[in-house]
Each structure stands twice: as C-alpha cells, then as structure tokens.
Amino acid sequence: MILFYGMLIYSALREMPRYIKRKDWRGGGIFAFFWLTALAISIYMSLGFKRPLLNRIIYNFIKEMFPFITKLS
C-alpha cells in the first residue's frame, strides 16, 4: 500500500502547484476529487477492515434480478 501512497503524494506534489499557477480551479477540483477518493480507499484498505467487494455486489444483485442466468450458463 505504501507504493500507492507514494504515487498519490508524488502526483499531488507534481500537479498542485501547476493548478494553482494556472488558476484552473475546475481541473483542480476534479483532480482533488479523484485524489481524495483514492486516498480514502487506500487508507481504508491499509486499516484492514472488511472490504465491500464491488463486483460481488453487482453479481449478487443481477443474479437475484434475473434468476434465469443460472440455468443458462
């Protein structure tokens, strides 16, 4: 996980001054959004909680909605 932190810190150090220099707040905002989301997920993962698994959720949902799938495949 430390690699991901490194990557995020590097990207912040690299891009933040540029955004401030260009006064591109919209771009900076979307950058910050992704950055914070990624940071949140990394922290959550490194704290070792039980992770909700994205595709498992979708899988179970669709399986319940369309029960014929099990028969067909």
């Binding site: 995020l8 990207s11 690299r14 955004y19």
Partner: peptide, 28 residues
C-alpha cells in the same frame, strides 16, 4: 477532462490510475 472542461487531461491520470488499481483490488 472533457466532462469537466479541464484544460488538460494528463494530471488526472495519476489519481485516476491509482483509483482504477485500487478498485480492481476490491472487485472480487
């Protein structure tokens, strides 16, 4: 970048790539 009318898409790639990697770890 086009959606948000950013001036450049490249800075988004690092956090977006990191996010993609993290989500891929949490798929299954």
């Amino acid at each position: 970048a086009q959606l948000c009318k950013c001036q450049d898409y490249r800075p988004l790639l690092l956090p977006l790539g990191a996010l993609m990697a993290l989500v891929s770890l949490n798929n299954f």
